[in-house]
């Protein structure tokens, strides 16, 4: 038997890598926005621990995702160095780590905040680890459309942690991330389609072709731009947010048109890369402005 199967080769940083820290940072940021802009307010310490629970829960679902996907991760350049395919963490260690953190994060959130928020966190972990990872990802090109819901829940959980309820506002925050996810990931999939094809993952460019992917990116982006402005339309965001959302939305549409027009060679790859990078900036800007405008400034002024 291979020695690494008998003796753990893992360092603590390998377990941190299992939590997908970069994904977690987006989760923390959007959940923080949900916590801060929710009406009523909560003790800052309880808010911080709630945020920690949401982050750990998201990380746990990432570890479960890496446990299940270790076989296809080993086939893709982008993921081959992850702890399990690299042989530093055994699948059993990752599974136990993910399950323990899942249970702990949900229980502590329930005790610290309320059981609605804990239930939403549990559902999010289940949705990402089971519905997306085990079922949708290898089955349908619509995998990230439906699976994107898992990444969209954190602001709603943050909101629920403070108010004990979900509302139209929290649903709009959910919707922004939900509709943002397909063009964001398909821009990456256009660049990495060979990786996905080798691993047999039916991402849209692999299953339906690049032309269809470019069309879908444009359609989702045309939908995203007005949805991104919805907080302003609905009156729970101010003029600054409206302006940032309008400019950012136009930028997203322009980049989506570029992807639609430039279909060959380096310019096509460049357009996809720019869309992928700008989409992160766009989402970050929307939530940052909302956080400052409706959270920080609203409390000071």
């Amino acid at each position: 038997m291979n020695r690494s199967a008998l003796v753990s080769q893992a360092e603590p940083r390998d377990f941190i890598a299992l939590l997908k820290p970069r994904v977690m940072s987006l989760v923390v940021f959007t959940a923080l926005t949900g916590i801060v802009i929710a009406p009523g307010g909560v003790h800052p310490v309880l808010a911080a621990i709630s945020l920690l629970c949401i982050a750990v829960g998201a990380g746990a679902s990432g570890a479960l995702n890496m446990w299940y996907d270790a076989d296809i991760d080993a086939l893709m350049g982008r993921t081959a160095t992850r702890p399990i395919p690299a042989g530093r963490v055994t699948p059993g260690e990752a599974l136990a780590f993910g399950l323990v953190l899942s249970v702990l994060s949900v229980l502590v959130l329930g005790l610290v905040a309320n059981w609605l928020a804990a239930g939403l966190l549990a559902f999010t972990i289940f949705f990402y680890a089971v519905v997306y990872t085990m079922w949708l990802k290898r089955w349908t090109p619509q995998n990230i459309v439906v699976g994107g819901a898992a990444g969209a829940f954190p602001p709603m959980i943050g909101w629920a942690a403070v108010t004990g309820s979900v509302s139209l506002e929290s649903f709009v925050l959910f919707l922004i991330i939900f509709i943002w996810t397909p063009p964001h990931f398909w821009a990456l999939a256009l660049i990495k389609s060979e990786d996905y094809a080798r691993a047999g993952v039916p991402m849209l460019p692999v299953a339906c072709g690049e032309a269809e992917t470019r069309r879908q990116i444009l359609l989702y982006t045309l939908l995203l731009a007005p949805v991104g402005m919805a907080p302003w339309f609905l009156g729970f965001a101010g003029l600054t947010y409206g302006l940032v959302a309008a400019v950012g939305g136009l930028g997203m549409i322009w980049l989506a048109i570029e992807i639609y027009r430039r279909r060959e060679g380096a310019p096509a790859r460049k357009a996809s890369g720019r869309m992928f990078a700008f989409s992160i900036l766009y989402l970050f800007a929307l939530f940052a402005v909302l956080l400052v405008e409706q959270g920080v400034l609203a409390r000071i002024l």
Binding site: V7, S8, Q9, A10, E11, P12, F15, H43, V45, L46, I49, L52, L104, V108, L111, V112
Partner: peptide, 30 residues
């Protein structure tokens, strides 16, 4: 391997201590 095992043990100790601190703080605050 001994070094890595020790690092893992220390990390687990810190995580458990952190959890205890969280429960203590929540009890005080609530």
């Amino acid at each position: 391997e001994k070094r890595r095992q020790r690092q893992r043990n220390i990390a687990i100790a810190f995580a458990l201590a952190g959890l205890c601190v969280i429960f203590w703080i929540v009890t005080i605050v609530k």
